[in-house]
């Protein structure tokens, strides 16, 4: 039967149609722009798509997409294109998302979004890599202790600002040597690390400076062995500053490890800020 005059007509384009991919990428951008914890996600597969006309103008894309966790934390300003996908041997995490994306005047905007994330199964991880550690709950006492011990060790060695814990982002129990691996986000405060007596009185800086720490804490007979490396991201101003005509704003750079940086130093004038590894 031909459609009634004026009735909406459903389109079923191919999932890899370039216009559908554009809608899916707009959806993934939306996820990452509204993410305040955990890790950025990247598009893995477009599962289903339906396109409805929208009155009076435009089209609505109903998309079901699969995403994968990257190694870039939500607070990391590295562009998604420069973020690596978390490998299966690191215990990958998948996202299942349902989106409504409006296309109007050539622009895509997200109308609704619903996502759920799930880690890969233990069987799948161990099928690929029998000895690889699995993710464990972030509120496990061994994890919270490892994050606290690692942050204390980091602040004790740090000559600059006192960093406070923002979020424990992932954790694994490593069998040999028996240890806890933890990744956690930190934020710079208005206290000096060497002078802090009461951390509860420290406040996050107005010009936000975040970082991601990776630590391994191993229990030993004579105490514990703490190893921690923190990558401090470039500062993130609250509002973009106006730029003179013809001068581009500094672009964010990937958080590539520097060789050795004992203390944060301001980049030379005119150069974009780099992450610091401490």
């Amino acid at each position: 039967m031909p459609p009634q005059p004026g009735a909406p007509v459903l389109k079923l384009p191919k999932c890899d149609d370039p216009e559908v991919e554009q809608a899916a990428l707009a959806a993934v951008d939306h996820i990452n722009q509204h993410l305040h914890q955990g890790y950025k996600h990247t598009l893995n597969r477009i599962d289903k798509v339906k396109v409805w006309p929208r009155r009076p103008f435009g089209e609505v894309f109903h998309l079901e997409i699969d995403t994968l966790e990257t190694t870039c934390h939500a607070l990391d300003p590295t562009p998604l294109a420069n973020c690596s996908v978390r490998t299966q041997t690191q215990h990958a995490v998948e996202g299942d998302c349902d989106f409504h994306v409006l296309k109007q005047d050539g622009q895509f905007s997200v109308l609704s979004a619903k996502c759920e994330s799930t880690p890969d199964s233990a069987e799948d991880v161990h099928r690929l890599c029998p000895d690889c550690p699995l993710l464990i709950p972030l509120n496990d006492s061994r994890v919270t202790h490892a994050a606290d011990a690692a942050l204390a060790a980091f602040n004790a060695q740090n000559n600059g600002a006192y960093y406070q814990l923002m979020e424990i982002a992932r954790a694994q129990l490593v069998p040999l040597p028996a240890s806890t691996y933890v990744e956690f986000a930190v934020g710079a405060t208005d206290c000096v690390a060497k002078e802090v007596t009461d951390p509860t009185k420290c406040n996050l800086l107005a010009e936000k400076q975040y970082g991601l720490c990776k630590a391994t804490v191993a229990e030993k007979l004579a105490g514990e062995d703490v190893s921690v490396t923190c990558t401090i991201f470039p500062t993130q101003p609250a509002a973009p500053q106006p730029q003179p005509d013809g001068v581009a704003a500094p672009a964010a750079e990937p958080a590539a490890p520097a060789a050795d940086a004992a203390a944060p130093a301001a980049p030379p004038a005119g150069q974009p800020p780099h992450p610091q590894v401490l």
Partner: peptide
């Protein structure tokens, strides 16, 4: 009559789901 596809022709690509960009879990 059924007309066989020409020899060497690529099989039709299903419209959905799309390609896997990294790996499937």
């Amino acid at each position: 009559f059924l007309i066989p596809p020409p020899a060497g022709a690529a099989p039709p690509v299903p419209p959905c789901p799309g390609k896997i960009r990294h790996f499937k879990i």
